[in-house]
């Protein structure tokens, strides 16, 4: 029966197939587009507490999703959502978002804090958050142009111990004269980068 049908279809040159049966598995774009309702079209966020993913390092996205899934990184909805995907899905999403043009949040920021933050960043953060945060080295995230409120939530989670810092970051944070204010200033600096 099945043979007959396909033979017939071939004979008739039938192009259309039932999409329910023969659709390709979700592509990177299909997976990533579903995220855009909260993270903005192509990962360029318009919501201050949700990070832009456009132009983020692929490794950072993949690691973050894995850590959300395992619970290693604290979250609200992200852990629940990450459980719906495989590592291969994370790779595909990471690949897609990392190739999008990085967005700049473009909010007004305190100039004095930016200035202070530039000095903090230069001295303590710039070895991994390289090129003024426009790139990340050894798994560090791209933070340039990221939303300040999002970065501040991360700082709170780091300092409260909810989110675990990588060893290198922990060492640097320990050296900060006033971790809370200094990290906030650094967040201002990175958020201000275009």
């Amino acid at each position: 029966m099945k043979m007959k049908f396909s033979t017939l279809a071939l004979a008739m040159g039938v192009m259309a197939v039932s999409s329910a049966t023969f659709a390709a598995p979700p592509t990177a774009e299909m997976l990533a587009n579903a995220c855009a309702g909260c993270h903005g079209t192509h990962g360029s966020s318009a919501g201050p507490s949700m990070p832009s993913l456009a132009g983020q390092d692929k490794k950072v996205i993949v690691e973050s999703m894995k850590h959300f899934k395992s619970g290693e990184r604290p979250s609200t909805v992200m852990g629940r959502l990450a459980k719906g995907y495989t590592d291969a899905d994370f790779e595909a999403m990471g690949d897609f978002f990392s190739k999008q043009k990085r967005a700049a949040a473009g909010v007004k920021l305190d100039a004095a804090k930016i200035k202070k933050g530039a000095a903090v960043a230069e001295k303590f953060c710039s070895r991994c958050h390289i090129e003024d945060g426009k790139e990340g080295k050894d798994g560090a995230s791209v933070v340039a142009g990221q939303w300040l409120p999002y970065l501040q939530i991360q700082n709170d989670e780091y300092l409260s111990g909810k989110r675990k810092m990588v060893e290198k970051m922990e060492e640097k944070v320990k050296q900060l004269p006033n971790a809370k204010d200094d990290m906030d200033a650094a967040a201002h600096f990175y958020a201000s980068q275009k």
């Binding site: 309702g37 903005g40 318009a46 919501g47 201050p48």
Partner: peptide
Amino acid sequence: ESWLKNILTE
């Protein structure tokens, strides 16, 4: 709040 901002901006 950011959910609303993002989805309406989209």
